[in-house]
Design a protein around this nucleic acid. Structure first.
Lengths: 204, 204
DNA sequence: CAATGGCCTATCCGTTCGGATAGGTGACCT
DNA sequence: AGGTCACCTATCCGAACGGATAGGCCATTG
């Protein structure tokens, strides 16, 4: 079994290498950034599994994952991350990743997950995925109507009421109404505050 | 020598534990979050060095570092991080941290750094600190005058010109002037855009 | 010394915002 | 059938914003 480990954290990469190599039948190759990893995949022979660090140089978020998946030999690719949220994990799996590994995993779990994924299964730690599941997506956004949400999006883009009206194909007074009610709901005193609140909440 | 390793990444913590323990004369204790770490420090006996992960639960950025430094036994504390920027590293050292360790370090360098710091030295990898040094701190912010910067801060807080004027103890027309010139400099069409641009740039 | 540049102030003007008020439509539920 | 709710439109008004223009103060610099 051939596994490619791509992570810019020397320490973690070495450890992973060590643990996997000591497993019978696992051959590992290492890279410290996305470009090196992509080249190794391109050169072949094919890997049974590629581990991509979410935050490594060249990754550009999940763009790297998608680029890797589109490559000839890049069919089994998993994301490994120390900081990413459940949303990112879900998006990765959605894009066709073989799995998602938070760095909070123990070495033993990680080795097991690697074997699991190399066999063609899709893996993600259940407790991690459940973690934020219960919490409401966005306490602020959920109390806004569809239109108000769209208007709020316009606000965060620094548009004027008139521009928002044009984009949504409604009259300006209507936009003003949505803006006003929206302020009340999220507790903003003016459009800039509304935009900042939305930004803080991680919307858009 | 007693070292406390506080990191929520099981894998990394175990590895660090392994490497340090194999070094003669280093005794390690582990914690997976800030509160556990703080309790271990409080209980004593004193550690020669405490390694705090920047992103672990309970840390709250550099707040955790400062709280730890204020504790009776918490004199030698280093920050370890996989994602933090040079700015954070500098701020940590400024606050009195014993060092800053990016997770891109190799195991060997890391063990050396730990020994170095435990001897009372302050450590930070030179290449890491030099990395962003050349690049302008904030391409946007640097072209603003002091006043314009203060006004921009007010904008991001959703204040009106009048409020900003009061806070800075200047007249409102002056604020308007700064706002206008500031728009030109950062390429904003209105105050909301200015606030969002500042936010995107990571200011405030 | 004169020039420069940052900072402050002022006035004027048109546009936009924020709020209030009043009403109309269609979908859905009881 | 009546009620509720989201969505749309309209008009009015005071306040704030965005821009232009014109000047004064002061420290730094050539």
């Amino acid at each position: 079994m051939r596994v490619l480990i791509a992570d810019d954290h020397d320490l973690l990469r070495d450890t992973l290498d060590l643990f996997l190599t000591s497993e019978a039948g696992i051959e590992t190759v290492c890279a410290a950034n996305f470009n090196d990893a992509a080249q190794l995949v391109a050169e072949g022979p094919d890997f049974d599994l590629v581990l991509l660090d979410y935050g490594m140089p060249g990754m550009d978020g999940l763009n790297g994952l998608e680029r890797m998946l589109r490559m000839p030999g890049g069919h089994r690719v998993a994301i490994i991350s120390g900081s990413a949220t459940r949303e990112v994990a879900e998006a990765a799996l959605e894009s066709g990743a073989a799995g998602f590994l938070p760095k909070t995993l123990s070495a033993k779990s990680l080795v097991n997950a690697v074997r699991f994924m190399a066999m063609g299964e899709q893996y993600a730690p259940l407790d991690f995925m459940r973690a934020a599941e219960a919490a409401p997506q966005h306490p602020l956004a959920e109390q806004l109507s569809t239109r108000e949400f769209e208007v709020l999006k316009g606000l965060t883009e620094g548009k004027s009421n008139k521009e928002i009206a044009r984009d949504l194909d409604i009259r300006e007074p209507t936009v003003k109404l949505h803006v006003k009610t929206l302020y009340r709901k999220i507790g903003a005193a003016n459009r800039t505050q509304a935009a900042m609140i939305a930004k803080e909440a991680g919307l858009f």
